[in-house]
Design a protein around this nucleic acid. Structure first.
Length: 287
DNA sequence: ATTGCTTCCTGAGCGC
DNA sequence: TGCGCTCAGGAAGCAA
């Protein structure tokens, strides 16, 4: 499942491989994968001149003033392919560049989409996103989190997954971040103390930064654009784990329809700020 | 305004 | 071996 670190890894790869390439065509193999918003289908995109992301959305901007907004959802992959290479079995769409190389959008579960807009049109999905911890680092502060959490009764795990609050965190990193912050996923967001929020903020930055360094987490589907796996799965502490490093059993529950993994011993409910002990530095990169 | 449920989709893994 | 069932989950859309 591509979340912020996986999408960041993909965007970095794309920047080095397809920036300034001319899009000759965008072929759709499965209806509904590519959606044109007030743009005709036979559009000449021109050259890919800017590649960036916000949250889990990948955005290509082109020299003829178009914007391609790509979301990989559960199982989407962007794979670079040499000319004449056979297409993967779940190819939903692909770009052909002027040099005949291809960028393939492969997606088993077919939830992913490519949305085409004119460059100066605002994209609702992007407008509704909260700050991204890296793209909007100046807005994503402990103070911002305090203001948002103040009135939220929802469990903190669900709030972390809310893209309107923070753009980019998905199920795996929500679980991992809460473990490293020593906060129970069941805790109501409004119960968190200022110290706990400050610690949570720093764990969000640390876990995501570390995952980016490791090129993301490959659990099942995620692949880099060279079709290779990420490495952060080797550093997961709770997600799909049976036992915590403290020796306690990892608990699996459902929250808002999603699996949550946590350690009841390390992540206790309703501790006062005074009792709170911040987890020490975190990663043992010797796994 | 916020929260929670359903839908989309397909392959893996399971029990029988 | 093969069938049917459950599960995985991001975000949109809707209901409460």
């Amino acid at each position: 499942m591509p979340e912020l670190p996986e999408v960041q890894t993909i965007v970095s790869g794309l920047k080095s491989k397809i920036l300034n390439k001319k899009i000759e065509s965008l072929i759709e193999l499965r209806d509904g994968t590519v959606r044109f918003h007030s743009v005709i289908k036979q559009v000449e995109f021109g050259v890919v001149d800017y590649i960036h992301r916000k949250g889990k959305y990948i955005i290509f901007e082109t020299s003829n003033d178009f914007k391609l907004v790509i979301h990989l959802r559960m199982s989407g992959k962007l794979i670079l392919a040499e000319p004449f290479k056979e297409l993967p079995s779940h190819t939903r769409a692909y770009f052909v560049f002027q040099d005949k190389s291809k960028l393939i959008f492969d997606d088993v579960r077919a939830f992913g989409k490519i949305d085409v807009y004119e460059k100066n049109i605002s994209v609702p999905a992007l407008e509704n996103l909260g700050p991204d911890p890296f793209v909007n680092e100046d807005q994503f502060t402990p103070r911002y989190l305090r203001s948002i959490f103040k009135n939220r009764k929802s469990p903190i795990k669900s709030v972390l997954l809310n893209q309107k609050v923070i753009a980019g965190i998905g199920n795996i990193y929500a679980c991992e971040i809460l473990f490293h912050a020593g906060i129970s996923p069941l805790e109501s967001a409004k119960n968190l103390s200022a110290d706990e929020i400050a610690n949570l903020h720093s764990q969000i930055m640390k876990v995501l930064r570390e995952a980016i360094l490791q090129n993301g987490t490959t659990i099942s589907d995620y692949k880099k654009i060279d079709n290779k796996t990420g490495n952060f799965q080797n550093f997961l502490m709770v997600y799909q784990k049976k036992q915590c490093e403290c020796g306690a059993k990892i608990i699996k529950i459902k929250q808002a329809g999603r699996s949550t993994y946590y350690c009841e011993a390390c992540q206790q409910l309703s501790r006062s700020a005074a009792q709170h002990v911040s987890r020490s530095a975190g990663y043992s990169l010797t796994c």
